[in-house]
């Protein structure tokens, strides 16, 4: 239909230009391809977001919680913890952090490690809620990585000298993008914990590692539930 109309219009305009069959054909094929793509693979879930959007939503949400002055510290921590748990893949994180030492742990030890490491991050970072001084987060870019990963680059704006560059590495798991590493000013959380755990494993094996984690977590303020 459209095709004929265009043809007539073109002819009627009489501008002497040859009729652009090829361009229209190209346009139609592109349109068809798009249509096919739309009907083709069904969108896996309505909630599927691109990595950049995942990080942006996460940052916006976190800043919103931190800025909410009517929320007591403990509730802030509970909400931030839930947010982090929903967006991080602790299983992969734990495997990466232990690297080749992962296999030196028994199945039960591995499970305990994932839980204790998760708790460790929650305890230590939860304590820093009061350090929040109205910083805001800006997503500055996105980079494709090997193994299908993405790195989303952000900047924490401190309103003074020294904005902090924070990169989030995301990997898809069960159709959802989850954070598997955080790199602050070039220092990767995975790499840093890996060298600490490597040192502890070399000197005392899995038992010492788990004992240290447990002790450290018990000494920190546990989350009041």
């Amino acid at each position: 239909m459209t095709l004929t109309t265009t043809t007539r219009n073109e002819r009627m305009s009489g501008n002497g230009q040859p009729f652009p069959y090829r361009r229209i054909l190209a346009g139609v094929s592109v349109g068809l391809i798009c249509l096919l793509a739309l009907c083709g693979p069904p969108p896996s879930s309505a909630a599927e977001r691109v990595p950049k959007q995942v990080v942006k939503d996460l940052a916006d949400h976190a800043v919103e919680i931190l800025r909410n002055q009517s929320l007591p510290k403990d509730e802030k921590r509970t909400e931030l913890e839930a947010l982090a748990y929903a967006n991080m893949d602790f299983q992969t994180l734990s495997r990466l952090v232990l690297a080749r030492n992962w296999r030196r742990l028994s199945k039960a030890q591995q499970e305990e490690f994932v839980e204790e490491f998760k708790r460790h991050l929650s305890v230590t970072y939860g304590e820093r809620i009061n350090d929040y001084k109205n910083e805001s987060v800006q997503v500055t870019g996105e980079r494709q990585e090997p193994r299908g990963d993405y790195t989303v680059q952000t900047k924490i704006l401190r309103g003074g000298p020294g904005d902090v560059e924070v990169d989030y590495r995301l990997r898809q798991r069960d159709n959802q993008w989850k954070i598997i590493d955080v790199t602050v000013e070039g220092v990767s959380l995975v790499a840093n914990f890996r060298s600490q755990f490597q040192e502890i494993m070399a000197n005392g094996g899995p038992d010492k590692l788990l004992r240290l984690l447990r002790e450290k977590n018990e000494r920190g303020e546990p989350l009041k539930s």
Binding site: Y125, R128, V187, N192, Q196, L212, L213
Partner: peptide, 30 residues
Amino acid sequence: SLLGDIEGARKASLDYYIFVRDAYDQRRRA
């Protein structure tokens, strides 16, 4: 300017010496 950061790092690390050594190495590399 590092009050919160250093306090946090001391608490977050299991071996603070290694934490600093690795962070220094990574930061310089970057």
